[in-house]
Computed example of a mutant assay.
Amino acid sequence: MKATINDQPRVTATDSAIALIEEIRRDHPDILFHQSGGCCDGSSPMCYPAGDFVVADHDVKLGEIAGVPVYISATQFEAWKHTQLIIDVVPGRGGMFSLDNGREKRFLTRSRLFAAAT
């Protein structure tokens, strides 16, 4: 799996998301993201301390944002493989187990189809 499609990263982040990542890393220096597949917290990008989340053999690493790895399950990757994920921040409460919870802002995944090669 390539980390880019037509020289576009599979995952990127807004400035707001990068600022929240930096805020979280002051308390938890080693973190990772896993794109949730639905269940308890919808389809939010979940942010975990790296040592508290076991990346499964079937998880796919999409890339990194602000030096933080971003993973997605293989089945969800298959459905979204033509889509660039854009991690953003909106007001609200984060997922119950995500490190953005309690900060009155939460991560949100936006997406767009990859542009065709020119």
Rank of each mutant, 00 (worst) to 15 (best):
K105F: 07
E64D: 12
A116T: 11
I31L: 10
D100Q: 01
D27C: 02
S36M: 09
D41S: 12
A17H: 08
R106T: 14
Q84H: 04
R106W: 01
D30A: 12
A66H: 13
P9S: 09
F77L: 03
E64P: 05
I21F: 02
I5Q: 10
I65H: 06
T4C: 02
R106D: 05
G94W: 08
S98M: 07
S98I: 10
Q76T: 09
Y71K: 12
A17Y: 06
D100T: 07
V89W: 01
D30S: 15
H82T: 10
S98Y: 05
A79V: 12
R10Y: 06
G92D: 11
T4H: 04
L85A: 12
L85H: 07
D57M: 11
F33I: 06
E64Q: 14
S44C: 11
R93M: 09
L32W: 03
T118H: 11
A115L: 10
D100A: 05
K81F: 00
K2D: 13
A50I: 04
G37V: 12
F107E: 06
P45L: 10
M46D: 04
Y71F: 15
P49C: 10
V11Y: 00
D88I: 01
I72C: 05
W80K: 08
F97Q: 15
A74D: 14
K81I: 03
D59F: 06
G51R: 15
I65M: 10
A115P: 00
K61F: 00
E23W: 00
T109P: 01
P29M: 09
P91D: 12
F107R: 08
R25P: 04
L62A: 06
R112I: 01
I86E: 04
V70R: 15
I65E: 06
F77Q: 06
F107N: 08
M96H: 11
T12F: 00
K61N: 12
N6S: 07
F53S: 04
Q84P: 10
Q35M: 15
E22W: 00
A19Q: 13
A3D: 10
R112P: 00
R26M: 06
D27W: 00
H82D: 13
G94Y: 05
Q76D: 09
F77Y: 15
A74G: 12
V60W: 00
K2Q: 11
K105N: 14
Y48L: 11
I87W: 01
E78Y: 05
L62H: 07
P49G: 06
T118A: 14
A74R: 15
T109W: 04
Q8W: 00
T75S: 09
K2V: 03
K61I: 03
D52G: 11
V70C: 13
A13E: 04
V70G: 15
T118C: 05
K81E: 04
T83C: 02
Q84T: 05
